[in-house]
Design a protein around this nucleic acid. Structure first.
Lengths: 342, 342
DNA sequence: TTGTAGGCGTTATCAC
DNA sequence: GTGATAACGCCTACAA
């Protein structure tokens, strides 16, 4: 309960052990050429023990210019996706001996610059940037390029190593899954078009439709805002435009919640009347009724690989410009007719 | 994309601006007695700009013995509860100008000591400790007492400021809610007894039963392990012991998922045959079918207040020994008969 | 108006 | 075997 000033220093230890602080340092670090009498050494260890001595990493960092700390900028930790990424980052960082300096930026105030300042002033060895809404921010991209960094969403001008999931594949396999279940008139409820991931998923969706010779058209696509309410509105619009639609690929599980609710209140059964597949495969997907099929995105793994790439980069290895992790389909009730053969 | 060594220092700025580094420092810090010619000042600012100068917080910390950084030890960020606490911590810390150094400890290896070492060596000004499974760890408690700290679960020997929710009240109001809905034979599915929060909730449950003159007894209580599967097993045991039981207070939403499933597979309707109320009120509670009533615990607020208390403590204010935040009941379908008057 | 001196806790190098 | 010196980047107090 005593203030930081009470952290013991090497000098405190040394004076208690009655040696010079350099000797104390050598002994405590196990320096190879420790030609110190066993008695002295024991005295030093004892002193360190009683004073709860802990080396001051700040001083060390000042010397060798590295902090063994990674800055993690996360858009919103409440968000299940961000939280999962953070877990992966933390796990792998711990394994590599790196600490995590955390900064998150509630969308309300656009204080990304402030947050980055906090990280950079503390001399993090590199940063991992997860902040979708800054995808089009010039200054943000500039900073990302000025420091060892890995981004989890594309950044204006590129030239920063990117780790993410294969969004085009996500759109494709989701749609293929619906096609395999006999659907031909398949809609899509997307996130905001300005997000690159959204456009990629849309491309994948179209890939699958084209290959299958299924119906395509603007009427079948509705843009929403990632929210459940947005999803609900979008599905209503789609059904007005194309009442015969029998399946929908929704770009996020969150929006899919709204879709399921809206369909229920419209008297449509899922999956019998309309099949649904979401995207992200968050834990709650299997808790919904009907349970929600979804494209599994390996968020934790993305976090882990971001650290791997960043640590590599910090130690001088040239990083890959882009790493795309594969996704898969988690099949559940919302996309599979309970009466097969239909 | 260049290494940390490339961070510009005050000296770099000074030599580019052709002044001594002390002058540069004064100008950039806006020191009150800046009697520097406007031209010189402008030169210095320009130099700082082109070099992307950022003060080195490490060096500053070395001088004044404070890092404006809080260590956050979180049991498991995957856990929705921990994640919410982290959000509150991050929010409030940002507001107070503190950074967060994150350490989490996957239960598997008991490396709490390692994690704390990482934080302490980096000279955090204080720590916030959320690690339920260390509630009975002596060494852990010892460390918590040796540094400005706030704990989010009780700690062996006490004497560390605690912030949490009023668990006894949680047990009481959950049970009262069931009683008000006409139930007399009310079971409880708890977390592990060794957890203090569990024992408190149990006390609150008994308080409510006693006041109402409702049935009490060991047969009505089953201990589980926080998991959905554990919840499922527990409810089956309770019903074997007391088939007439009409309501259950479950100590976590996670366990309540298992309870809902088990009841469904036993052919029991919720809430008509058995009413359920969970605890935590995580976002998924309202997504379940039937939607789950739950005791709302203000996790984000707990995180915020932990920071407030810690920052106070760091700046010398004596902290409260214990702060208990009030909880409330979120009423949903699982605990309220759709046919009122029954 | 600008520059100098000393020190924060370390470690590396080198001398006794 | 042990200790002195210098350096990392910054700040405060003081001298020119």
């Amino acid at each position: 309960m005593f203030p930081l000033a009470a952290y013991a220093s090497l000098k405190d230890v040394a004076s208690l052990a009655q040696v010079s602080f350099q000797t104390a340092g050598k002994v405590l670090n196990g320096t190879p050429d420790v030609r110190v009498s066993t008695v002295t050494a024991r005295r030093i260890f004892a002193a360190a023990e009683t004073l709860h001595y802990r080396p001051n990493a700040l001083a060390k960092s000042l010397l060798d210019g590295a902090t063994a700390t990674i800055g993690l900028l996360i858009a919103d930790m409440t968000d299940a996706v961000s939280a999962r990424v953070a877990v992966g980052v933390q796990e792998e960082a711990a394994r590599c001996g790196f600490a995590i300096l955390l900064a998150s930026l509630p969308a309300r105030d656009n204080n990304a610059a402030d947050m980055l300042r906090i990280l950079l002033e503390r001399r993090v060895d590199g940063v991992i940037l997860e902040s979708p809404h800054l995808e089009e921010d010039h200054e943000f991209a500039e900073v990302a390029r000025s420091v060892p960094a890995v981004v989890l969403q594309h950044v204006l001008g590129g030239r920063v190593p990117f780790i993410g999931s294969d969004d085009r594949q996500a759109g494709r396999i989701a749609t293929e899954h619906l096609i395999e279940n006999g659907h031909r008139l398949i809609g899509s409820i997307t996130g905001p078009y300005r997000r690159r991931a959204v456009r990629s998923r849309l491309l994948g969706y179209e890939d699958a439709l084209r290959v299958a010779g299924a119906v395509m058209g603007e009427d079948l696509v509705a843009e929403a805002d990632w929210s459940a309410i947005g999803g609900a509105k979008a599905v209503r619009i789609l059904l007005e435009r194309e009442p015969r639609m029998t399946a929908v690929f929704v770009h996020s599980d969150e929006m899919a919640i709204g879709v399921l609710r809206e369909l229920r209140s419209l008297g449509k059964r899922v999956p019998d009347d309309v099949a649904i597949i979401g995207c992200d495969d968050l834990p709650f997907a299997e808790l919904l009724t009907p349970s929600l099929s979804s494209v599994r995105v390996p968020f934790v793994e993305i976090g882990r690989q971001a650290v791997t790439a960043l640590v590599g980069q910090i130690s001088g290895r040239a990083p890959d410009e882009e790493t795309l992790l594969p996704v898969s389909v988690s099949v559940r009730e919302s996309s599979t007719c309970l009466v097969p053969g239909l």
